[in-house]
Amino acid sequence: MIEAKELKKRFGRKQILNGVSFTANKGEITCLIGINGVGKTTILKGIMNLTPMDSGQILIDGEKMSKDMYEKITFIPDAITMIPTMTIAEAMQFMQDYYKSWNQARATELLRFFKLKQEEKISSLSKGNTAKVNLLLGLALDVDYLLMDEPFSGIDIFSREQIADVFTSHLVEDRGVVITTHEINDIEHLIDKVVLLDNGVVLKEFRTEEMREDEGKSVVDVMREVYRG
């Protein structure tokens, strides 16, 4: 389980996070929702120790972040984290060189799944394919937790569908996934849990199936209530 407790972060005069707490379970897909600039990405970077929090605590299975944790949890930012002049094969080699948790068989499978050619240079790929390579480099790690920042934004519909397919496949199975989005429509049926954020705090945290069962509301219904109400 990923536990975020009372996270606070200020950038200059702007209090981006003002006491954010939530949990994300292993084996579930948790979605952080909020308009752009609400601090979703900052939370993910905070979990990965890529941006220090001013206060608060982050625990992963009860442990604090450390260098060894990068074999257990990974982050897929919204832009690719590789050198553009590398080919896909070189990028995969880089990952294999540094991560014990790199799973080459899974990487090969993902290449096929996304129909990517490994001799292609990253800089020559389309936006959609770049997003897929970015995803591949994260998904091919045998980690327990995956954090993804806006995996569906700014790419074509077919790439989006392919990426959505990943979530229902064994490629994600049994892992804890945290994704951020400002556009929930495509993925409502994919997620287990929703954390609604605004003004640096969590407005509501709920499980999607429970919400449908107990109150007959879709995620968008709840968002309308919370953000407009």
Partner: peptide, 16 residues
Amino acid sequence: GKNTFIYRLLMLPTSR
């Protein structure tokens, strides 16, 4: 720019 390779470097499972 759009280069986020520092993410990768800082997320390597090795001492920074």
